[in-house]
Amino acid sequence: MEIESFESRYMQSKAYLVIEGSRGVIVDPANQGRLSEYVYKRDITIDYIFLTHEHCDHIIGVEEARSFSGAPVICTRICGENIANSRKNFSRYFEAFASVQGRFRIDPDLHVEPFIETADEIFDNRMRICWMGHEIELKGTPGHSPGSMCVLIDNKILFSGDTLLKNDYTMFKLMGGSRESFNKETEPWLRSLNKEIIVYPGHMEEFVLGERLNKTI
């Protein structure tokens, strides 16, 4: 199994492509252009598009990915509701937010119009998929956002979105974020997992789960 990452200009969010043979799944189509070019170039058939959460910097390439692949977009029920609302997916505020943070000085061509998206399949807390001999578990992990989830493959690889980052605390301040939900539901689940799991987060580089859990989340 191969994992390719594609960093987006939008908040440096990461899109991931998991490849097995000539098949693939996309985790967070955060990147427009390079991801699709790569898929075309290697003639990969995309079977699923997973969304770790509803924020626009992670879903901005959903329409493009669905269009070129025809694959279903899968996320939690709340994520599915929130991506259909430009305020809740944050695209309504993205340009202002990026500007306030000073990011437009770095990338003056960055523009995001408010947009909405739709999911094809949703689930409430947990969904399991057998894919190319691999066991994929989608687990709702509220905290960073109410619609957050993690993607666990073979109990060895975890795509954490913004639920768990390497060097940053998990952010709960964005609309709908909840430290309480994270403490109650998400953190116990993360701590129940194999500590050797390699985590591929929604921003920055990957890390070993156990090492990260030894530090303050």
Binding site: Y93, A96, F97, V100, K173, L174, M175
Partner: peptide, 10 residues
């Protein structure tokens, strides 16, 4: 901060 600003606006 930038996040709080967006919360205020919303």
């Amino acid at each position: 901060d930038s996040v709080g600003h967006m919360q205020l606006i919303a």
